[in-house]
Simulated assay, not measured.
Amino acid sequence: MTSRIVVLDGATHGLVDRLRAVRAAGDIPLVDDVRRPEAERAAVRALVRDARPPADAAWATLTSGSSGMPRIVLRTAASWAQSFPAVSALLYDDAVPDAERLVALPAPPSSSLTLFSLAHALGGGPRPLFPGQDGDGFAEATSFHGTPQALRALLDGGGLPRVRTALVGGSHLDRDLRADAESRGIRVIAYYGAAELSFVAVDDGSGLRPFPGVDLDVRDGELWVRSPYAALGYLGAGGPLRTDGDWATVGDLAELDPSTGVDTGTRTLRLRGRADGAIITASATVIPEEVEAELRRLPAVADAVVFGLPAGNVGSLVAAMVEPAPGSPAITAGALRGSTASRLGPAHRPRIWFTGELPRNASGKPARAEIVRRALAGEVTRVAG
Rank of each mutant, 00 (worst) to 15 (best):
T2Q: 09
T2M: 09
R4W: 01
A11V: 11
H13M: 02
A25E: 11
G26H: 05
D27C: 10
P29T: 07
R35F: 02
R41K: 13
A43Y: 03
V44I: 15
R45E: 08
V48C: 11
P53N: 03
G65R: 14
S67L: 10
G68P: 13
I72A: 04
A81Y: 02
S88G: 13
D94C: 02
E100P: 03
V103T: 13
A104L: 14
A107C: 07
S111H: 08
L113E: 01
L113S: 12
F116S: 14
A119T: 09
L122E: 03
G123P: 08
R127P: 01
P128M: 08
P131A: 08
G132I: 07
Q133Y: 03
D134E: 11
T142L: 05
H145G: 06
T147Q: 03
P148S: 13
P148Y: 14
A150T: 08
L160N: 03
R164S: 11
T165D: 15
S171V: 00
H172K: 14
L177Q: 08
R178L: 13
E182H: 01
S183E: 00
G185C: 04
Y192W: 12
Y192T: 13
A194D: 04
A195E: 08
E196C: 08
E196Q: 10
F199K: 06
D204W: 12
R209F: 04
P212I: 07
L216A: 05
D217Y: 01
G221Q: 13
G221R: 02
E222T: 15
L223N: 07
A230S: 12
L232N: 05
L232A: 12
Y234D: 04
L235F: 06
A237W: 01
D244P: 02
G245R: 07
D246Q: 13
G251I: 05
E255L: 13
P258Q: 07
V262P: 02
V262M: 10
G273L: 12
A275K: 07
D276Y: 03
I279V: 06
T281G: 01
S283P: 00
A284S: 13
A284C: 06
P288V: 02
P288Q: 09
E292V: 04
E292A: 14
R297Q: 10
P299E: 00
A304P: 09
F307E: 01
L309D: 00
V314W: 14
G315Y: 14
L317D: 05
P329V: 06
I331A: 00
T332F: 05
A335D: 04
S339T: 06
R343P: 02
G345A: 15
P346F: 06
H348R: 12
P350C: 03
P350R: 05
R351T: 09
F354T: 13
T355D: 05
P359R: 02
N361I: 01
G364E: 03
A367Q: 13
R368L: 06
A369K: 12
E370K: 15
V372M: 02
R374D: 02
E379T: 03
T381C: 01
